[in-house]
């Protein structure tokens, strides 16, 4: 064995390929279960997908780097559940490509944000955080209200989402741009199509309060109001178990 090793070392290529093979066999065996880990995720047949407007808002959340300061993952710890709400379940982020669990809370967790505040609160907060929370260190995002939302590419976004596994129908993909507009303009004709495809529960409102135009603010607020509302699994789960699996993750 040792003689072989010395010979192996003599050729760098052999040595490097040796390292690659030896280490990656170990690595592959170890990470193989990660590729099937989604099998372990609880099921929620009633879970809905993001609407096109919410997805556009989610992309703005990503673009602005909100995840750098806000987590979306409530841990199984007593104080977190009391502060933020039911702890997060894996199923809740099954349509999140990519996930936005975050790793730093410069600001509070947002996993249960949807429905917690009014649209007006969100708009005011994003325009000037310190007008509502004087000690906040969050930046103001005034350009969101100025920028028109570009929805023309939404069909492309939905079809890519479908390719990675989110169950959008062909109908939803084809009308994604219309639906994004409709959700933020409930009195328009486009809204009818939106209701038809996404059901009446899905929120349709003038999110930014401005009826004249569709802005990035509309999209972001629509997304913020949707966080944690796609699935009811977590609140149901919390009602049943009442207790937190102390010291334990979701098994």
């Amino acid at each position: 064995m040792l003689g072989k090793h010395a010979k192996l070392e003599r050729t760098a290529i052999g040595f490097a390929i040796g390292i690659i093979i030896v280490a990656s066999i170990g690595g592959l065996i170890e990470i193989a279960p990660l590729f099937t880990i989604d099998e372990t995720v609880e099921e929620d047949p009633d879970m809905r997908v993001y609407t096109p407007l919410e997805l556009a808002g989610r992309n703005i959340y990503i673009r602005e780097g909100c995840y750098a300061c806000h987590s979306q993952m409530i841990r199984t710890l007593q104080d977190e559940v009391e502060r933020y709400g039911p702890y997060s379940l894996a199923v809740e982020s099954q349509y999140d490509h990519p996930m936005l669990w975050g790793s730093k809370r410069t600001g509070p967790d947002l996993a249960r944000l949807g429905g917690k505040y009014s649209d007006q609160w969100h708009v005011a907060h994003l325009l000037d955080p310190r007008s509502l929370v004087p000690q906040s260190v969050m930046p103001a995002y005034r350009w969101l209200a100025r920028n028109d939302l570009d929805v023309s590419d939404m069909p492309l976004h939905l079809s890519a989402q479908k390719k990675v596994g989110v169950p959008y129908t062909d109908d939803m993909i084809a009308n994604a741009d219309e639906d994004a507009f409709g959700q933020a303009n409930p009195d328009s004709e486009a809204a009818d199509g939106f209701f038809e495809r996404y059901g009446f529960e899905a929120n349709a409102r003038y999110f930014d309060g401005d009826r004249r135009k569709l802005t990035e603010m509309d999209a972001l607020v629509a997304y913020l109001q949707s966080i944690g509302t796609l699935s009811e699994a977590a609140s149901k789960n919390n009602e049943i178990t009442k207790t937190i699996p102390d010291e334990g993750g979701a098994e």
Partner: peptide, 11 residues
């Protein structure tokens, strides 16, 4: 869009 989602993506 990431090929992975949720818990798999996180891991």
């Amino acid at each position: 869009y990431s090929l992975f989602s949720g818990v798999q993506d996180a891991m």
